[in-house]
Amino acid sequence: LLPGVTLHEGVAIGALSLVNRDCHAFGIYAGNPAKRIKERKRDVLALEAAFLTKTSLLG
């Protein structure tokens, strides 16, 4: 991740990727340089919150 680059909400970056430009919301980026390879589902944050709530109740 180079200086000055902005990662917007819901972005996923692949391992060993060089991010030299801003990444738009809910995209999956990978490569050298990183390119948008796929769109991410927008309900991923709600699923994460539900999972964390359930997990904290079990522990």
Rank of each mutant, 00 (worst) to 15 (best):
V11H: 04
T6R: 08
D22E: 01
E39N: 13
L45Y: 08
E9T: 14
L7G: 00
R40Q: 10
K41Q: 13
V11G: 07
N32P: 03
D43W: 03
A49K: 14
R40K: 08
A50C: 10
H8K: 09
N32V: 10
T55L: 08
H8R: 11
A30C: 09
A30W: 00
G59A: 05
R42A: 13
P33W: 01
H8S: 11
L58M: 06
L1P: 15
D43I: 06
Y29S: 00
R36M: 14
K35C: 13
N20T: 12
S56I: 09
T55M: 08
T55H: 10
N32T: 13
A50D: 15
A34H: 04
R42H: 14
L47W: 04
I28G: 01
L47C: 12
G10E: 05
V11S: 08
L2K: 13
R36I: 12
R36F: 08
A50R: 10
R40P: 06
R40D: 05
L7W: 00
L16C: 06
L16Q: 07
A50K: 12
N32R: 09
L52M: 14
A46P: 14
H24P: 15
Y29W: 09
E39Y: 06
V19W: 00
F26M: 08
A46R: 09
G10S: 08
